[in-house]
Structures are given as C-alpha cells and as structure tokens.
Nucleic acid binder design. Sequence first.
DNA 1: GTGCCCATGTAATCTGTTACATGATTAG
DNA 2: CTAATCATGTAACAGATTACATGGGCAC
Lengths: 164, 164
Amino acid sequence: MTELEGALLCEIRRRKVCTAYEMRRAFEKSSSLEWSGSTGAVYPAIKRLTQRGFITAEQSKDDARGTNLLSLSKEGMSAVHLWSTDIDRAIGPGFDPFRTRSIEWTVLPPAKLKIHAAKLERALTARIEELEKTFKADNTDTRVELDLALQRSRLVWLRRTLLD
Amino acid sequence: MTELEGALLCEIRRRKVCTAYEMRRAFEKSSSLEWSGSTGAVYPAIKRLTQRGFITAEQSKDDARGTNLLSLSKEGMSAVHLWSTDIDRAIGPGFDPFRTRSIEWTVLPPAKLKIHAAKLERALTARIEELEKTFKADNTDTRVELDLALQRSRLVWLRRTLLD
DNA sequence: GTGCCCATGTAATCTGTTACATGATTAG
DNA sequence: CTAATCATGTAACAGATTACATGGGCAC
C-alpha cells in the first residue's frame, strides 16, 4: 500500500461518503507540494483500491455524469487501521525538503548565508502566521497542528544554528 | 531537478570526491525510509547529472573495477546552490508519514487509541535517545539535529493531544 | 579459495506527472 | 447562454523499486 493509497482510504473514512473528485481537490489544496492530487494518480489509485475490495462505489441517482459515491468496505476499514498504526512507517522522518537542504546551508559563505537565512526566517514566519489563522478557524485537523509544530521547530533551529 | 538529484549533488559536494556506490550506501543508511538508495534510482540519476554537465567522473587508477571518482563541476556547484536555496520548495511540509496518519488516530476508539498512543510514545522516545547519541558523537550533521527536533515536536504533540 | 563487501549496471514493472479529452451541472 | 466548476478518465512520459547480473578486491 503506497502513501497515496493509505491517505485516500483515510480521507474516505473521514468523509464517510465522497466522490473521487472531492478527494482529488482535497489533495490539491494540501499545503504539501508532494500531494499533487493529479488525476493520473488519484483515479488509478481508487481503481486499484476498488479492485482490492477496500472501496465500494455506488452510482449516484439524479446525476448523468456517472458520479460515484465512494465509501469504505469492512476490509477497507481494517486496511486503513493497519496502515495507520504501522509504527515503523509512522515515525520515520519522511521526505523533508528543509532537512535535505539544511546540510548545504551550513557550508555557504557567510555573506550568502546571511541573506538566505533572513529569507528563510521571513518565509517561515509568514507560513506560521498563516497556519495559526487556519488553526484558529478550525482546530480539528491534526495535520495543520503538526505542520505548525514542524514550522516552529524549523524556525527555532534556524535561529539557533544559522542566525547566531 | 528531482529531490534525489539535488540530494546527490549535495552529497558529492559534502564529500568533495566519492563513488556512486558510497553515495548509494549513504542513502540506504539514511534514517528516512523514503531514501532507499536503490541502484535503479541512483545510477541512472548520476548518469543524467553527468550528461547535464553537473558531475565530472574520473576513472580511478589501480582499480580494474571501473570505479568512477565523482566530483562537482562548476555548473554542478551553481546548480546545487540554486536547488538548495529555493525557499518555496524548502519550507513545504514535505512528505510526513506521521502527519498523514495522525488524522486517523484521533478517530480510533479509546481503548485502541490508548494502546497505539503508548506504542508511539515508546517508539518516539527510543528514537530520540538514539538520535541524541548520534548527535553527541558527531554534531556536524544538521539532518540529525533536525530529525531530533522533529521527533521531539511529535512527542510533545502526542502527549498533549492523544495522551491527555 | 571462499565468502563478503566494493562497484557498476540493466530489465520488468509500478507509480506518479502532465497534458489531453469529454461531458454534465450550476451560478450569473 | 456562457463560463466556471463538477466529474471522470486516458496516453505519453519520467522516475523509482525490485530483482537480476557481472566481476574485482581483500581478509581469513
């Protein structure tokens, strides 16, 4: 099960019933650039999950577009539970573009470092403010909360390490 | 430029001169499961970077294995600089398996949540201890430092949100 | 001399991206 | 009625994984 497949199952579970299109949009709007929500990824993934018996599709009446209302089967429920409680996969650092690049920043010449660190600080501060607003509007999405925690820890690291 | 390509350039810069095999090993040993360092990813990526003129390869003497000593060209140096200072890509939350799964944990039934949260706490604590040891042995790798910061912020979130 | 690591690569397959394509519904 | 959005998909291509394949160097 890929991350996308697991995340799709999670999303259906959260929404109980939804369309492929709604999920695609949700991934598109994700703050993470890694979740593109492209049609060529989402529709085939849903097809696979349906073939494996994790997703049940039901044609909506009163709609000639072939709109499918998707929901989780019993097998889908237990699959998403197994996937989400896999400790080893959960606690890995994942794919962190900040972390990957950080090693390069420490070897920049002082003048360039100063400029770059200042830009990073501004960008992080703006992002944190934005996330705080989102969180105040709706504090039920743990992903926003964890994004906020991540950005704050990056800022702390930045100030302590590159801006001392 | 993909994340792998950028990370490979970073790695060569760090090491000044190295073989493809050494880099592959480094990615394999990475604490992130997302960096597999598979031959089918690394060798073709190095080939592409060489063709673009970012990497210079020199055959090692006294070795009949065709060992290539890789280093960065001038163009490679400037490419890695551009890649590493791309603010928008750097500050995205990336691909965080903990964050992706977190939304599912909050809807677990209390009994299952308790067990899972306890397992997560143990795993995170163990990982933090391990990372602290690594960091004490060598505090020059910012990736270890940022991994540590990430795991600590996850633990804080876990205790505040799932274990209250 | 044999097993383990160094060192390089390719082939089949899978997943994801980008671009293309189609048509229904709804708000103005 | 027309533009935006809803809704579904496919095709060409790029990139990654897994497994396979080869052979040199070295320690015991």
